[in-house]
Write a protein that binds this DNA or RNA. Sequence first.
DNA 1: CAAAAAATGAAACATTTGTTGCGATTGTTT
DNA 2: AAACAATCGCAACAAATGTTTCATTTTTTG
Lengths: 291, 291
Amino acid sequence: MGLYSDLREKLISDYAKLSPQMQKAARYILDHPNEVALRSMRALAGAADVPPSTITRLMGAIGVETWQDFRDHYQSRLLDQPASYAQRARETQSVENDANRDEHLLESIARTEIDNISAAFSPELSSRMIEACGAIENARHVFIVGCGAAYPAAYQFAYAYRLFRDNGILVDGHSGAFGDELRGITRRDLLIAVGAKPYIRDTVQAVRFARDQHCPVIAISDSDVSPIALDAMTKLVVRDHSQSFFQSFTAALSVMQALVALLVARGGQKALQRIAVAEEQLAAFDTYLED
Amino acid sequence: MGLYSDLREKLISDYAKLSPQMQKAARYILDHPNEVALRSMRALAGAADVPPSTITRLMGAIGVETWQDFRDHYQSRLLDQPASYAQRARETQSVENDANRDEHLLESIARTEIDNISAAFSPELSSRMIEACGAIENARHVFIVGCGAAYPAAYQFAYAYRLFRDNGILVDGHSGAFGDELRGITRRDLLIAVGAKPYIRDTVQAVRFARDQHCPVIAISDSDVSPIALDAMTKLVVRDHSQSFFQSFTAALSVMQALVALLVARGGQKALQRIAVAEEQLAAFDTYLED
DNA sequence: CAAAAAATGAAACATTTGTTGCGATTGTTT
DNA sequence: AAACAATCGCAACAAATGTTTCATTTTTTG
């Protein structure tokens, strides 16, 4: 019997030959290797949503005698990891070539991104987000605008929001002239605007138009005094520090996702039901690929 | 009950007060912390040369309810990244207060997002990203595809990329039928595909089409064996853990931004000049608002 | 020294774990 | 349509795990 230096590769190469349920199990194992090392087989089966017997069968299918052998393999893999980590750090320090300059840049990016996210979930911002949720829940229509680099964040919110509420409108100019969707906006509506420097004219004009119609604004921006946030009811000022030329919208996206999570959590059972219905509709349109 | 950030200290401070046999056990645990995380209590007792009951008594002596709690602590210590994540999750669950529930949820979200990003910049993923950059630089055309919740990440890359390279094409179906942009794709091109479960049919078909034309694929996905990543040349598997119903695309977005940053850094002066030109064009179109 | 207190290890206990067997279900072929 | 094989999940099983009990030994104390 051939011994594999890493069972992971064996699992990947044999993946296609496995039965659907075993694929499900293999997939979970590939995605969560540490759980193999730390949790019990039954717990792992439960997490992967397969009966325990499937795991046992998977062992046989990939040529592993017993679960213990499999687990041992993943345990030693877990113990070896810190070693290679340290070794890599040493290598990075010793040689000063082009390749590890890239690695340094990536490490620096990672730190910055984490800082940005941490700042976005400070107590102050958190309470503002909760406040924003209240406003969203009471609005008649919820408009979302964000252009250029801010478009992903706006789209993200609009996409998720529409799965459980049907009063969200993404202002992106895809339906005619930009801002056309805003016609008829009133003080009972709400505009969520995303944007950082350099501020894009369309976004700012959308905000101003909404303000003129006495529509409250929730601004996700890079400054309290940015043209987007200046007159906003709720200001969510997120950091967009970045190692590169472009600003980072990671924190903005994260805040958008957090808003959705909050809304769903507060919406309770009803929100979950709506999501289920939306998913069924998507399935009916054959949007998803069945596993 | 006082919670210690590290039970190790508790073990050391109480060491003198323990009975001889318990000291023997405590000594072994302090010397072999990983064994606590990986082996069974009986096995540990055997290794420490004490009866199992001594371990149970030691638990009570240092104020730990059960062996499971003790083991959990050492397990999360072993995976130093999500250190107190499990504990935090448990706390969030235990407190059923409506007023604080939102804040706890946000804290939990923040923690998870940071974990996701940390994992995305692991040594393994970092080297894959550098590898991906090489492929991007040598490709004739760079196609980017991502649907549904993955669209923001795809858009983000395409938007930034087009500021310094003019061979990027976002496959989003805005120009006629979906996938129409892919016509004429060859082995000299490159497809960057973003997507997580549930996999959207359009994305998967785009990947398959590219593969059929022998076009290499860079996959940003949630699993090594996802239909998007399975046959990909370079697999960037990012975590999408989330406290809410939806998966998080924060890490995917962050990876996209990092790729752009890498490309610009490697592109040197030439890339910066192109960016300057692009900005001037946007200014000419009166896109930005002058301060 | 004797009585009380503490500590110890073996065994018993209920629980959990990994594995196996079997009937039911599914999908394919004749 | 019937027959076959593959796959699946439930339930039973034996082995192990964590905990408790209790009699014995050791230590402390008056």
